[in-house]
Design a protein around this nucleic acid. Structure first.
Length: 571
RNA sequence: GGGCCCGUAGCUCAAUGGACAGAGCAACGGCCUUCUAAGUCGUAGGCUGAGGGUUCGAAUCCCUCCGGGCCCGCCA
């Protein structure tokens, strides 16, 4: 709320300076208000004079002076304004304005930090979308957290968000899965059935076969192969998808839509898209296959789109799939893909562009892969070889909170190593505990309030149920001017940052900023806690600090909520 | 070979083109008759891979080089 207000004041001042002739009439750049690193120089600062210097043709400090002269800010909001450095304007907030922040936070409650950038525009975020051929592995954990947190951020920014999972249930992969199950099924009855070339070797494949044995005995041995494979495929798909849903649920991820690739084929959407491409002269035949002229859209070579055996490639369905999403009324589509799918971006976007879609409406967020490290040794994961650590294993080992926080902490475009050994043994050193501990400490104080001679009279019993201890009237009447300690001021500044963090993290698709912020807020609280006692004999001070402390809990809870990590009341 | 991503403290990572580049872990030294020590304070640690450029200002943008990851399939 401070930045937005300061921006407004600055814009008005600059316009006033132009009207008064103190500044030449040049276009105003977008006004930026920053927190100087470590708040060393000021609470807030703007580089507006520096940005204006060139077009205005005046020294920055002179411009700064003209703007400062024209500034009209109530003294109860900003205590001091100064010109510094090369031409920055520095602002020092009046304590009263900072105290107002607490009233603002309580009145916003769980919506504190929200913005209305989206204006209810509809966004589809598609993530995880792992092939339904086996358990989710660790990479899907990173994908899931990036997508889920991004969806949370966009919702907080006022977008109407739909979370979607695309099920690749149509291609060769699920066929190979069915054949793999069939192999184990026959083996159980001592019969030979060759293992498919691209088969799946994990232990779970044998388990699936055994479940069929248990249910149907040897009934399938004598049935026609096609019928058997169809039945095995459907059984395996159902089981695997159910297992995925369980794991994702445990991971705190829930989808609004599970979209079937096969449905696209059954509805003829794939054929329609291919026909449309053909009509535009973008397909041609060569070596028995049909090729897509993807070089027309920035690809480095043309690609096969229909194999010589008549089966379309994976990305052929991806084109109508994204058309389908647009037809469902989404203005923006965001896909979260592993970096190994990089090559598909040009194909899918090219296909869409060919059909007249403005491809700026499709944004593909690529994240680098997760490598697993064990005792310093890097492990490569391959599902086909049956070598991977599942997401379910990870959840068992480190828990949902640590896993989510860990995946969220890293910038998506940077590869991350997951140290299995460390993750298993770590509980104290994990950064998530630092943040959660701050929350638990606050809850502990609020509980303790009920036993405190001064505190008892101040708070509502709702504290015990984890609710807010104060109503808005109590906060309006409280004297917050006693919050003057350096650590209290620092804490207030930290609280003020959440809206900005949500906006930047959401707009730039950088969920890790939430983790950085959570840590900073927790740190500000821990420092305050060590230096200031909340519950004391001073009734006014106790009340003010309780209000501050409960506001920190609210903001921590909100931040952790966006990350999808729990906010425990005890640890 | 071509395309994309990355290179920041011993290790893992932060850092809206802004002022003296910050945390955690690891190392060393302090702080618990007081609301949770899973905390806190201090010390030490850096030519932001190298070199050019753009800019009033570059870890951040551009170019070259070095090093690493991913992709370049009628797999997904």
């Amino acid at each position: 709320m401070f930045r937005a207000a300061l921006r407004q004041y600055l814009e008005e001042a600059a316009k006033r300076a132009v009207t008064d002739g103190a500044l030449p009439d040049v276009p105003l750049p977008s006004v930026e208000v920053d927190v100087p690193r470590g708040r060393r120089h000021a609470d807030y600062a703007t580089n507006l004079p520096l940005a204006l210097a060139r077009t205005a043709g005046r020294p920055p400090r002179e411009i700064a002076q003209a703007i400062v002269d024209a500034l009209e800010i109530p003294p109860q909001q900003v205590a001091r304004v100064e010109i510094a450095g090369a031409g920055f304007i520095n602002f020092f907030l009046a304590p009263a304005w900072l105290h107002d922040l607490l009233r603002h936070i309580y009145s916003a409650g769980d919506t504190y930090g929200n913005r209305d950038l989206g204006r209810r525009r509809r966004v589809n975020v598609e993530y995880v979308s792992a092939n339904p051929t086996g358990p989710l592995h660790i990479g899907s954990g990173r994908n899931g957290v990036i997508g889920d947190v991004l969806a949370n951020l966009l919702a907080a920014l006022g977008y109407d968000v739909v979370r979607e999972y695309y099920i690749n249930d149509a291609g060769l992969l699920v066929h190979a899965l069915a054949q793999s199950v069939e192999h184990h099924y026959f083996a159980h009855f001592g019969q030979e059935k060759p293992f498919p070339e691209d088969g799946y070797r994990g232990e779970y494949v044998r388990d699936l076969a055994m479940q069929i044995v248990q249910r149907d005995g040897n009934a399938w041995l004598a049935r026609p192969e096609e019928e058997r494979l169809t039945a095995f495929r459907e059984f395996a798909l159902g089981e695997i998808l159910a297992e995925m849903r369980r794991t994702l649920e445990e991971f705190g991820i829930r989808f609004d839509v599970w979209f079937s690739e096969r449905a696209l084929y059954e509805q003829g959407a794939v054929d329609r898209a291919l026909t449309a491409l053909r009509e535009r002269g973008l397909l041609y035949e060569q070596d028995g296959a049909v090729w897509f002229r993807s070089t027309s859209f920035g690809d480095d070579k043309d690609r096969v789109i229909i194999r010589s055996n008549g089966r379309p490639m994976y990305y052929a369905a991806d084109i109508p799939y994204h058309l389908n999403k647009l037809e469902r009324g989404f203005e923006l589509l965001i896909d979260v893909w592993g970096v190994d799918h990089f090559g598909d971006v040009a194909r899918v976007k090219g296909g869409l562009a060919a059909l007249g879609v403005d491809t700026s409406r499709l944004e593909i967020l690529l994240y680098q892969h997760v490598r697993l490290r064990n005792e310093g040794e890097l492990l490569r994961m391959s599902r086909r070889r049956g070598e991977f650590v599942t997401l379910a294993d990870l959840l068992d080992a480190v828990g949902r909170d640590a896993a989510r926080y860990f995946f969220c902490m890293y910038t998506p475009s940077v590869p991350m190593d997951f140290d299995w050994q460390l993750a298993r043994e770590t509980s104290q050193d994990n950064p998530v505990y630092y943040v959660q501990y701050a929350h638990a400490r606050i809850s502990s104080i609020l509980r303790e309030t009920l036993n405190h001679p001064v505190g008892r009279a101040l708070v509502a019993p709702a504290v015990l149920a984890g609710g807010q201890p104060f109503d808005l009237a109590a906060i309006r009447d409280a004297d917050l001017s006693v919050l003057t300690h350096e650590t209290e001021i620092a804490l207030l500044h930290a609280l003020a940052e959440l809206p900005e963090v949500i906006e930047i993290a959401g707009r730039r698709r950088e969920p890790q900023r939430l983790c950085t912020y959570a840590r900073e807020l927790a740190e500000a609280f821990h420092v305050f806690y060590t230096q200031c006692r909340v519950l004391s004999d001073d009734r006014r001070l106790t009340m003010a600090r309780l209000i501050l402390t409960a506001a920190v809990r609210l903001v921590l809870r909100r931040t952790l909520g966006l990350i999808g990590v729990s906010a425990p009341d005890r640890m």
